[in-house]
Simulated assay, not measured.
Amino acid sequence: MMNGKMDRRGFFATFVKMAGVAFIAPTVLNTVFGSEAHAQKKRGAAPEAAPAAKGGMPLLDPNDSVAKAVKYVADYKKAPEAKGNHCATCGFYGKKDATTGTCTIFAGKLVLADAWCASWNKKA
């Protein structure tokens, strides 16, 4: 390798070293830095529920600050001010499946079709 050319033995030695680094590096990095799930497990925290079951969006939590602000309830029958109205009959609601849908008020979250909030607006 004196004249800038690599011989066959040098090539294979370099190749084996590079392959070893490429194979071992991810394992070492994962061990050193760990994953978020592993870190949560070590802290004793419960892992977040996977929202993938309903197309990647989580179901709206009634304790959400926006939900509380508009008096969101998961069952319209438990809210006398709903007067029989519910999300499935609201203009802001977009049906996703038989029991859930999207709402422009609660962006990125699914709401129950039988829920209600004070922002209910009759469908046009």
Rank of each mutant, 00 (worst) to 15 (best):
H86C: 06
V28W: 12
A88W: 01
G56N: 12
K122E: 05
C87I: 07
A98N: 11
A39K: 07
A115T: 02
C117A: 10
I105F: 03
M57F: 09
C87S: 02
K123L: 14
A124Q: 06
P26W: 08
K78H: 10
L110C: 06
M18R: 11
D97K: 00
P51A: 02
T31K: 14
V111W: 02
Q40D: 10
V21R: 10
G91R: 04
K54W: 07
A53S: 13
A88C: 04
I24K: 14
K96A: 04
D7T: 08
G84F: 00
K78C: 11
K123R: 11
Y93H: 08
G55Q: 03
V73L: 04
A118M: 08
D114L: 01
K95Q: 02
G34V: 06
A49I: 12
A22Y: 03
M1E: 13
A118R: 12
F15A: 11
V73P: 01
G4C: 09
D61Q: 05
M1G: 13
W116G: 04
T99D: 13
E48K: 13
A67I: 03
A98G: 05
T102K: 08
G101M: 04
H38E: 06
H38S: 14
A37S: 12
M2H: 15
I24W: 12
G34T: 09
K96Q: 10
N121C: 02
A88Y: 01
A118I: 00
K123A: 06
F15Q: 07
K71W: 12
L112N: 02
G101D: 01
T99H: 15
G91L: 02
N30T: 11
K54P: 08
F15M: 12
A67L: 03
N85M: 04
C117T: 01
